[in-house]
Design a protein around this nucleic acid. Sequence first.
DNA 1: AAAATCAGCCAAAGCGCTTTGGAAGTCTCC
DNA 2: GGAGACTTCCAAAGCGCTTTGGCTGATTTT
Lengths: 339, 339
Amino acid sequence: MNLKQFSRMLELSQTTVSRALNGYPEVSEETRRRVVDAAKRHGYRPNPSARQLATGKTGMIGYVLPTGASVDIDPHFVEFLSGLGDYARAHELDLVLSPADADDQETTYRRIVANRQVDAVYISSPQPRDRRVALLNTLGIPFLVHGRTEGFDFDYSFLDIDNEGAFREAARLLMQLGHRRIALINGDIRETFAIHRERGVRAALAEKGLVLADDTVSSAAMTEENGYRAARRLLESSAPPTAILCSSLIMSLGVVRAARELGVSIPGRLSLIAHDDVFPWLKPENFSVPLTTTRSSIRAAGARVAERLAARLANLEDGARGELWPVDLVVRGSIAGAP
Amino acid sequence: MNLKQFSRMLELSQTTVSRALNGYPEVSEETRRRVVDAAKRHGYRPNPSARQLATGKTGMIGYVLPTGASVDIDPHFVEFLSGLGDYARAHELDLVLSPADADDQETTYRRIVANRQVDAVYISSPQPRDRRVALLNTLGIPFLVHGRTEGFDFDYSFLDIDNEGAFREAARLLMQLGHRRIALINGDIRETFAIHRERGVRAALAEKGLVLADDTVSSAAMTEENGYRAARRLLESSAPPTAILCSSLIMSLGVVRAARELGVSIPGRLSLIAHDDVFPWLKPENFSVPLTTTRSSIRAAGARVAERLAARLANLEDGARGELWPVDLVVRGSIAGAP
DNA sequence: AAAATCAGCCAAAGCGCTTTGGAAGTCTCC
DNA sequence: GGAGACTTCCAAAGCGCTTTGGCTGATTTT
């Protein structure tokens, strides 16, 4: 059933029916009710392609998915998606994933903007001077960044967690426990979140006149294996750290494995704090030694991103606005006084 | 730039330009070349909404994403997505994720079909008599199932791995090593893959006249915690198994933790085989005792699904066809002769 | 009582593409 | 050399919606 048939059935013009359905004021309340009721009863729904062609709006939000043989999508992504979807479904907001060559995402961004395939875009895992952010800013499509950039001279909307504050607090706590040799096993240092975390640790150490030596910092993709390697290197060095801050729960699996292999007890000889994005399938309290964590639900972030994007599309949210979430520090058994 | 302007520029009719671009035969090779060249040079691309309205084709494939506060998206999903995207990007195939209430996906499926929002749909984690499969079959939209159903009297396209064969072989291997009390820690038994795996184990045991006792089988969502719980229960029973088959690497993290807590050595007192979907961030060879696994890359499956879907849309693949992939058995240190 | 206003509705013109049903022009063949 | 058969291109009619501009009759203002 299309608008023509439907309006003929109601003995109204297409104009009136369309306006009634879209909430325009030029139609009487009675007529509107009649139209809305009939639409529901007969299951009439405007054809999205046609509406899209006429208005340019699609009701979809876009995400460019970097792919490639050697590109791994972060497992955090599904959790984020869970939250996003959970909110979006109530608004019939669909998400379009446009796969792109990880080394040339610009082409894809240009395509989806030129084609008007989506009304807004979200970006994740930004780098300080992220090219995608700069690009979207010039292309003029609404977008929302999960994370932050640094050093751009324009404003944009973002949602980020206070990575710096979280790791500063975590480092402070370790120092209160007497730790002086603190190491950081970080994610990919090209990404802003990792930079912020390192900055937080440095700031805390600086308060006590300490510095984070280069050989006590490592950064790599957040896999179990990389966590293991970094921990081994640290623990086998001439002056091993007494505490490790770790950017991910998955990496800390590897840290624990390394410690066990080397007979380093946690928290006896090594204190460990990890960042927890809250996975349903791997919980810090279930580590052999329950893990102290900085915690922030990435799922909640996904829901909030969807909420703000929806508000943006409804013109309820205007312009650029940053939003910074505090991070919990949850103390469990993996930390103790310095040996 | 739209078709009207573009065709005026070329001094050709819109018809001819459209046909040239879409590969119709009624246009001379020379004209076609001229049109295609000019399109590339001037960056002309047909507006997808308009094309969509005219043809009904969208060039997108759909996936209904079950969401809800208590619904967790499987972390395997991103790996699948990696593969799917890696293939799809070369074809400019986009993926539309339509979030739905996990308890009422039908509404969403009906919507995306009625709205013609996507050209084809794929389904994952099917149950034996999956309602989604039955629904899509009657709705008549092309679809591809990753996994299989059981007991339907119609054919459809699917891609599945030989879960039964994999677990049969794994169980056989354990029995060759002398194991008689073998337990299975499975995923959600409502899903076909889990049923097939259990069936495989039972078949192998039956060959030796053994049966899989009810209390040696457990099934639950594949989390570390559920793996731990199941393993504890098994290992603390009056007649603990000497070998465990486990449906997921994540669960087997929990199994290893339970074994360690109880002082049960692997493979000394317990042999362990897990199924590995191949994650970049957690590898069986990096377990404290390297894990013997049944292995099948879920990423490769994603790529193949995209490939077949693309073929379907191009009318190269016709009708229903099932595809069953063999599963590797990779032997590592976690198995040994029965104690 | 005439003029001005306004609420409520409508016809028709897009949006940018594909596709139908020709119409020229070019070849072929008897 | 003219009829038929191709080849190559075109004008115009959709696809199903939104939106502009205008029209009618009722209400308010002067």
